[in-house]
Nucleic acid binder design. Structure first.
Lengths: 181, 181
DNA sequence: CATAACGCGGACTGATATTATCCGCGTTAT
DNA sequence: ATAACGCGGATAATATCAGTCCGCGTTATG
């Protein structure tokens, strides 16, 4: 796949729903069902966001996740790094030292400092990271909110509330997880 | 692996050697041996550079590759695109349309235009590509040349000339490809 | 206090991309 | 004619990604 994987897509979209939910904790299952994506896979992404301090988890029944910071304080870069783990755009194999002219013993002038080719890629990576760092979760949420009609917020709250009350632990009566369209 | 693969590393370094070679055509085998990398793999990269118009090939004995443009006119972006094939930084799965609230029939306001999350990544990708577009092969070669001592250029010419004369097609006497260190 | 819904982590699987290698074909200087 | 080229296809090893499944400890509910 591409450099930024679907894990990032799942993660960012889920965080956007959390900004909608306010102080209510949403479970990874709710978030997965709401978005029509794999629950077990999304469940592997959230612990990464938690370790990065972007999200807070509450365990047990009625547990789930909440944003641990204001959406303005969460940059796209922080989310990407939390999920992808600071993977470099380019990983230099240091070709320069293998030059046959050096015959196995490359001089120090050839190998010290950063490889000129690597430097080019590092500048490109920095430009990308700066662009990501300049965009917050709040910015993305705003762009998204501008498209949705006003009644959508209410519909979302209804869906979430139905879901929250439906999933109460009732021994002997496993919940059906059926939700009106 | 990372988004920018070793193919790019091989390609850029090889093009840098071509700037050294001037009007002499270097074979992919020479370039591979000179740099201590796989010949058969490098041989798969050059046709891509040729199709992109960065390099010109001459066939037959004593054939090889030459730059088809001045190093100032070749940007890092052109090389990356030629080799990697314009692969996107992020490929959007359009999660937004799968929202359960829409019940399988997402409204047009939800799906038209570019997804807000995708837009963030597109801005980051553009920043990266702009950074690559702003750096030419000549720039990289200069950074590299500044490190090498003056006598290195002569050593390189010697290595290449030895190589060129050693590989003359002599029936019955397959060349040994041995070159002094 | 038993139950079921949580989060957490590890093992595992299938698909795809990367990094190669090898072979046969047509071209061309010696 | 020969051997060194470039060109393209087939194949293989390895890694990563996307996704599933399981068992563990925690916790509100009835």
């Amino acid at each position: 796949m591409a450099h930024l994987t679907v894990s990032v897509e799942y993660g960012v979209h889920s965080l956007l729903w959390l900004t909608y939910a306010g102080d209510k904790a949403l479970s990874s299952r709710d978030l997965a069902d709401l978005q029509g994506i794999s629950h077990s896979y999304l469940a592997k992404i959230f612990p990464k966001l938690e370790k990065a301090g972007i999200v807070r988890a509450s365990e047990g029944v009625r547990g789930g996740y909440m944003l641990s910071r204001a959406p303005e304080e969460v940059s796209a870069l922080q989310i990407v790094d939390a999920i992808e783990g600071r993977k470099p755009l380019f990983d230099c194999q240091d070709i320069r030292g293998r030059c046959a002219i050096f015959g196995g013993a490359p001089p120090t002038w050839a190998t010290n400092g950063v490889c000129a080719v690597h430097a080019v890629m590092l500048r490109a990576e920095k430009a990308m990271r700066d662009a990501l760092a300049g965009q917050s979760l709040a910015d993305i949420g705003r762009a998204l909110g501008d498209k949705a009609p006003p009644e959508f917020a209410a519909e979302t709250q209804t869906w979430l509330d139905t879901r929250l009350s439906a999933r109460v632990g009732r021994p002997g009566a496993p919940s059906e997880r059926e939700v009106p369209t």
